[in-house]
Design a protein around this nucleic acid. Structure first.
Length: 514
RNA sequence: GAUUCUGUAGCUCAGCCGGUAGAGCAUUACACUUUUAAUGUAAGGGUCCUGGGUUCGAGUCCCAGCAGGAUCACCA
């Protein structure tokens, strides 16, 4: 395929050929032994200078300041950046100065991967640097790397800020924008911290099917695909809830899964077609226990991440110190909307929506109407972590009926910064009741609600073998990460967010059939 | 899906009332033995997102499309 090369790309290809002509392999095979990393050198050199007399580091060349017979260059490895001082007479002790004059100064470029060996010292201006004795080209870059310069006050110049560029070429974004890397490191820490706590609580990490013939456990439009050998449609899972509960039936008393779920719906700054949800289920517990577990779980995550329970999100400080506030759905609406849903029928709720200019649909039952009222009047008020408890039964088909409030279920959502972060309940384990609830979903479907749940008969069969009383929860990991890293867009916490194809899609390749 | 803004050099951006393209960084060449967004001098580098239209003439005005952002609606 013929491709148009820019001037800078042509020059770099010329340099590649020149290196080969000089007998230098621009993509060498042997291991390059690395003895130190940049951040470690900077952190420990002042205390133990004697430990850094022989140092080998490797990374990407990020800048080069040519001073004639010496050069200052910056190498970036996974830990950070370190300045290198490269002097002609050190690199070329003999008469042949080409290694410095030609190879280092002319044939290396910003973006190249290289290794450097030497001793650490502090420059006249006080910067801890590597005095380079030997260098090795490890991989030649053929495309120019966008240069972001930062001055002493930390202000950066010409930073690549175009989200399209950053998301489509995340690898470049990660190289040149250190704060982006930091966000993803935090994401990993969040997941690790949660996993550690769940393991410590004796739960088992499990994997359940992503390809499902009945996409259950939530209400959403699924992606559909086709299995050739079985000649059946399969759906990408929208939730893993029903599978995890089958495992509770099977005798595991605590199971969890960090699950990629898929929903074939709109995309915006808070929705990506694939996203990550942590779900876990614990036998012999109820939703009160789950609230306690959840608040200490999240408190510990924030503590691990920041050393304090407080997080700055935009202009507000959110404190994850347990216990979190608890407010029933009825109390919340009483407080923020001045209405008492316990005394209102469907018509009264519809009227309340109308008064507040909230759009309603004919198929909306009590549950959806209350949900709409709550979303409109209460949600935005829940800035500090708040458990909203006790939801109407008709919007929670998998939840056990409330122990004392008829018409309600034992469910809570955790609201933080005006948004839902977790959804949990005392699981419905009465198989006959579950069958009735599924039937009600069918009726909703008949009323025109295209989000009603599919019926999973195998799941009902599992419940008929008896599932212990169980508490379960789902926590949106992307949303949690957004909150804890102060990011407004889900694209900022996903390495490779879904994007529209940039150019006209080439002819779809023939599916290889087996 | 609706509204709105944006798309110009590798990157960040100017480009007036319509007259065939500009800066900084990066690149190339030269100078300089501790620089800090290094500096100085010089040079090269463009499918102005794509396709139509208006016009003697379009980066600029009009229409359509593509991609991205923001706001709104729905979903997590």
């Amino acid at each position: 395929m013929e491709q148009q090369l820019s001037e800078q790309e042509r020059i770099r290809r010329d340099k590649l050929n020149e290196l080969r002509r000089m007998g230098i392999n621009p993509y060498p095979a042997p291991e390059y032994h690395v003895s130190h990393v940049a951040a470690d050198i900077k952190a420990r050199f002042a205390q133990q200078p004697e430990a850094f007399t022989q140092v080998r580091i490797a990374g990407r060349l990020m800048s080069m300041r040519d001073m004639g017979k010496a050069c200052f260059a910056v190498l970036q490895d996974h830990s950070g950046r370190l300045q290198m001082y490269v002097r002609k007479d050190d690199i070329c002790p003999g008469d042949d100065k080409s290694l410095f004059d030609i190879v280092f100064k002319k044939l290396l470029d910003i973006g190249d991967i290289m290794g450097a060996e030497g001793y650490v010292f502090t420059t006249k201006t006080g910067e801890i640097s590597l005095h380079v004795k030997h260098f090795t080209l490890l991989s030649k870059a053929l495309r120019p790397l966008p240069i972001v310069k930062t001055d002493d006050s930390g202000q950066s110049f010409d930073a690549v800020s175009d989200p399209e560029f950053r998301y489509r070429q995340r690898y470049v974004d990660l190289i040149i924008n250190p704060q982006v890397r930091d966000t993803f490191v935090k994401r990993s820490k969040i997941i690790n911290c949660i996993r550690r706590q769940l393991n410590a609580a004796g739960m088992l990490e499990v994997e359940t099917p992503i390809l499902q013939s009945i996409p259950g456990g939530a209400t959403a439009r699924p992606f559909i695909t086709h299995h050739n050998a079985l000649d059946i449609p399969l759906y990408l899972r929208i939730a893993n809830e029903l599978y995890l509960k089958r495992l509770i039936v099977g005798g595991f008393d605590g199971v969890y899964e960090f699950a990629k779920d898929f929903r074939n719906e709109g995309m915006d700054r808070t929705h990506n077609p694939e996203f990550t949800v942590l779900e876990f289920y614990v036998a012999y517990k109820d939703y009160h226990w789950m609230m306690q577990f959840c608040e200490t779980l999240l408190e510990q995550v924030v503590l691990d991440l920041y050393g304090s329970t407080a997080v700055q999100v935009g202009a507000t400080t959110i404190n994850f110190k347990a216990p979190f506030a608890r407010l029933s759905m009825r109390e919340a609406l009483l407080q923020h909307a001045g209405i008492d849903i316990s005394t209102m029928d469907e018509a009264a709720l519809r009227e309340a929506c109308k008064q507040r200019h909230i759009a309603t649909e004919a198929h909306m039952g009590r549950g959806k109407l209350i949900d709409a009222l709550f979303g409109e009047t209460c949600e935005g008020h829940c800035i500090q972590p708040t458990f909203i408890t006790d939801y109407p039964v008709d919007m929670s088909p998998l939840t056990k009926a409330h122990r004392s409030l008829p018409g309600y279920v034992e469910r809570f959502e955790l609201m933080v910064n005006g948004k839902e972060l977790a959804n949990a309940y005392t699981e419905l384990n009465d198989p006959l009741e579950q069958r009735t609830r599924f039937d009600e979903q069918l009726k909703l479907q008949a009323r025109g609600d295209d989000e009603a749940m599919f019926i999973d008969h195998d799941f009902l069969r599992a419940l008929e073998y008896a599932m212990p009383p169980t508490a379960g929860i789902g926590i949106g990991i992307d949303r949690l990460t957004m909150l804890l890293t102060n990011q407004a867009a889900i694209q900022e916490v996903l390495f490779f967010p879904q994007m529209r194809p940039q150019h006209q899609t080439p002819q779809t390749h023939e599916q290889p059939t087996t």
